[in-house]
């Protein structure tokens, strides 16, 4: 997994965005490598999509939450401890093997969305409106032992509790090509029924669009090894007249191993 390849993830994700007409759409948490050995630095960067293409951003200085979960441990970083602005930061060095879940909740934002963006999520006539946007980003990084061996770790299937979340119900870092990946989408911890998803294979550009059921559960088939990115969006109209729309947007990135590395 080269750094160049990782950068491609954002571009493909942008092309696949289910809400590409929405302003400031798409964001991805990118790891320098999705498979590292214990003790090896993992560099993370943050890229946000725009209608004109992916734009590199400085690391958000005021995330609502940033954490790394790995093999029964978790490190939470509060806003004041977040790294200063930098396109790439050596965020963590895993000390043990497993699957690291790296999560980032951005501070809630208020945006004006055009009517055509909102119209995708309602059958009613809409006009441009203010939308409260909850964005969360997650990356799964497989951490091998120093001798290169993989170990079991169920962190990937654990619920993170992020404000917008795509939770794999199987560990995608161990699924062989041809396997199905079921996920559950949450908004503020509750199942996001009807959420729309796009799964994209970074190198090939292959993509799948699908929707979650009433409980927020959805599934797609992983067709090939390599880096994948899933994006979900759940948009809800105002609960009261004059209120804001709400959009919960989550992305999940991970690497599917080749067949021989897929076995537990």
């Amino acid at each position: 997994m080269t750094h160049t390849t990782v950068l491609l993830a954002a571009a493909v994700l942008h092309q696949a965005s289910v809400y590409s007409s929405a302003p400031n759409a798409g964001a991805l948490l990118r790891a320098s490598d999705f498979s590292v050995r214990a003790g090896q630095h993992v560099h993370l960067s943050f890229k946000q999509q725009t209608p004109t293409g992916p734009v590199s951003l400085a690391w958000p200085h005021d995330p609502a939450w940033f954490f790394v979960r790995l093999a029964g441990t978790q490190h939470n970083r509060s806003a004041e401890q977040a790294p200063p602005s930098s396109p790439h930061r050596s965020i963590f060095t895993p000390t043990g093997p497993g699957v690291a879940m790296i999560g980032l909740d951005l501070a809630a934002a208020e945006e004006w969305w055009p009517a055509d963006a909102l119209a995708k999520y309602t059958t009613q006539a809409v006009s441009p409106a203010r939308v409260r946007v909850l964005r969360s980003l997650t990356a799964l990084v497989r951490v091998l032992r120093e001798d290169g061996a993989a170990v079991q770790d169920h962190t990937a299937t654990s619920k993170s509790g992020q404000q917008a979340e795509i939770r794999p119900l199987m560990d995608p870092t161990t699924i062989p090509p041809g396997g199905d990946l079921p996920v559950r989408v949450y908004t503020l911890g509750a199942g996001a029924g009807g959420a729309r998803l796009v799964a994209s294979h970074v190198e090939s550009g292959e993509r799948f669009e699908f929707a979650a059921d009433s409980k927020g559960i959805a599934s797609f088939t992983i067709t090939r090894p390599g880096v994948w990115a899933i994006e979900s969006i759940c948009v809800e109209p105002p609960r009261e007249p004059g209120g804001d729309w709400t959009a919960a947007i989550a992305t999940l990135s991970f690497e599917v191993p080749a067949e021989e590395g897929a076995r537990r």
Partner: peptide, 8 residues
């Protein structure tokens, strides 16, 4: 500040 442990 969010200080969630490894299991919610």
């Amino acid at each position: 500040t969010n200080v969630t442990p490894p299991h919610v």
